[in-house]
Simulated scan of single mutants.
Amino acid sequence: MDWQREGFETHTGEVGVLLADGSEPGPVYFDLGSSSHFHKSTDWWVYDGSPRRPTATSMRGKCACGWRGEHTFPLDWEQVLRAGRDAYDVSGPERDWEAHMDDVAARTVPLPGDVTGLLRTLRERLDELVDDEPLVVLQAAGKLEAIVADYGPIAARYIAGDAIPLPRLAEALGTTEKAAASRLSHYQYLNR
């Protein structure tokens, strides 16, 4: 069960767990047969203390960007068994991740209101058209790609010329440093 917020793809959230000593366990590996491939999982519910698995005692929010929630919430494995893992209350970690995302969003470069409105209107209109007029949507996608190809490289050159530090760029874009560097590089070399 992952949590996502539109526009922040590198910030996938999920329930993280802690062991009794306060450490975060590594992945659990599953042998699914005689192959050399082992499935691994970090889903919170695999840390139930079953044979050869660690037992988590608490949970917290965690994000793919490396953020970990400060608040911990006790894990009651008897309640997990009674309610089922899909019905078990993980709202505490999710609320903490939502607060993390609010903080990430607050530090991004805000789009001007008219640009936000245009993008929202365009998305809504394309959503209305896609089922009945997929050719129109594909034509619009091509025009959008042309706009991006015109302006993305210009913006990337300005950013590179200003030598904006990677941590600041990542924060402004609401992404990780790796994803920010990749986006900048993509646009710097888009038309070459």
Results as ranks from 00 to 15, higher is better:
Ser41Leu: 05
Cys65Asn: 02
Ala146Thr: 14
Glu78Val: 06
Ala106Leu: 03
Ala181Cys: 06
Arg68Thr: 15
Asp2Gly: 07
Gly66Gln: 00
Gln4Gly: 06
Thr72Ala: 03
Trp44Ser: 00
Leu19Cys: 09
Pro93Leu: 01
Gly92Tyr: 01
Ala87Trp: 08
Thr176Asn: 08
Val115Pro: 06
Arg183Cys: 07
Val148Pro: 04
Gly69Phe: 02
Ala179Met: 08
Ala181Ile: 05
Arg192Leu: 08
Ser58Lys: 04
Ala172Leu: 13
Val90Ser: 02
Thr72Ile: 09
Thr176Asp: 04
Arg120Cys: 05
Tyr187Trp: 07
Thr55Pro: 02
Arg192Lys: 05
Lys178His: 11
Ala149His: 07
Val148Gln: 12
Asn191Arg: 15
Ala83Phe: 07
Leu173Lys: 05
Ser23Leu: 07
Tyr158Met: 11
Pro54Thr: 00
Ala140Pro: 00
Arg52Pro: 02
Arg183His: 10
Gly26Pro: 05
Thr121Ser: 13
Pro134Lys: 03
His39Gln: 14
Phe38Asp: 11
Ser182Leu: 11
Val137Gly: 01
Val137Ile: 00
Arg95Ser: 08
Ala106Tyr: 03
Asp43Cys: 10
Met59Glu: 01
Ala163Phe: 11
Arg157Val: 06
Glu128Asn: 10
Val104Asn: 01
Met59Gln: 01
Arg120Ile: 08
Thr116Ile: 09
Val104Ile: 09
Ser23Tyr: 06
Pro74Phe: 05
Gly26Asp: 07
Arg85Met: 12
Ser50His: 08
Glu94Asp: 07
Asp76Arg: 06
Ser50Arg: 12
Arg5Asn: 04
Gln188Met: 14
Tyr47Cys: 02
Pro27Cys: 01
Thr12Gln: 09
Asp103Ala: 15
Ala170Ile: 00
Thr121Lys: 11
Gly69Ala: 03
Gln79Ser: 09
Asp132Asn: 06
Leu169Asp: 02
Pro74Gln: 07
Ser35Gly: 05
Pro165Phe: 10
His39Ala: 15
Val137His: 01
Leu75Glu: 03
Ala20Asp: 11
Ala83Asp: 15
Ala99Met: 10
Ala181Met: 09
Thr175Lys: 00
Asn191Ser: 13
Glu177Tyr: 08
Arg5Met: 04
Asp21Lys: 02
Asp150Val: 14
Tyr187Cys: 01
Gly61Val: 05
Val104Gln: 00
His37Ile: 15
Asp86Val: 12
Glu177Met: 12
Gly33Leu: 06
Ser36Asp: 14
Glu145Ser: 14
Gly152His: 00
Arg82Thr: 10
Arg125Tyr: 11
Pro27Lys: 06
Glu177Lys: 15
Gly142Met: 03
Glu6Arg: 13
Asp131Thr: 13
His71Ile: 12
Val136His: 06
Gly49Gln: 03
His186Ser: 11
Trp77Lys: 02
Thr175Asp: 00
Gln79Tyr: 04
Leu169Val: 03
Asp150Ile: 10
Ser91Asp: 09
Ala172Asp: 12
Lys178Gln: 13
Val136Gly: 04
Ala106His: 03
